[in-house]
Each structure stands twice: as C-alpha cells, then as structure tokens.
Amino acid sequence: MKRVGFILFALLLLADIASAIGVVYQRHEGRVLFIELTKLNKERDEMNFEYGRLQLEQSTWAEPNRIEQVARGQLGMDSVDPADVVIVRR
C-alpha cells in the first residue's frame, strides 16, 4: 500500500516536471514563431509598399501627355485623319 502511494507520487512528480518543461518549451516555440510572423508581416508590408511605388512609377511613365509626346515626336505617329476612316459594318 505504501509502495503504491510512492510510485503514484513519483509518477505525478514526473508528470508535473514534464508538463512544466512542456509549457516552457511551448512558450519558447510560440515566441520564435511570433518573431517569424512579425518578420513575414513586415516583409509583406514592404512588398505592398514596393508595389505602390512601382504603380506610381508606371503611372508616371504612362502619363497621357508623355505617351503623346513620344508617339508624335519619337515614333512619328499621328491620329487618323477623319477622311481616311473607313467604317466597316458587319
């Protein structure tokens, strides 16, 4: 009877220690993952900002005035003379 009690006590003690270590480990794991998450979030934000910057840049390049200048000046393009327009009816 006394022996059973002792074994039970030892088991509970071991379980207790194991659980304590488990908690500490999980806590650590949680923090490591959290740091990872923060890093990834930051990375995502940076990418979003980069996207915004690229959008801005593209929009500046695609400014209608600039396109017109390039088309007329460098590429020698012109809009169609209305007299040359042929309307195709299907």
């Binding site: 979003n48 900002f49 915004g52 910057r53 959008q55 801005l56 929009s59 695609a62």
Partner: peptide
Amino acid sequence: SRGSVLDRNGEPLAVST
C-alpha cells in the same frame, strides 16, 4: 496606409508611399 484613388480604368491618381 491611406487607400489609393484610381481613375475609371484603374489607373492610379493618388497613391500613398
């Protein structure tokens, strides 16, 4: 961040960076 303003074809008109 503040939302962008786009024209009717999705071209950006105001962007926050």
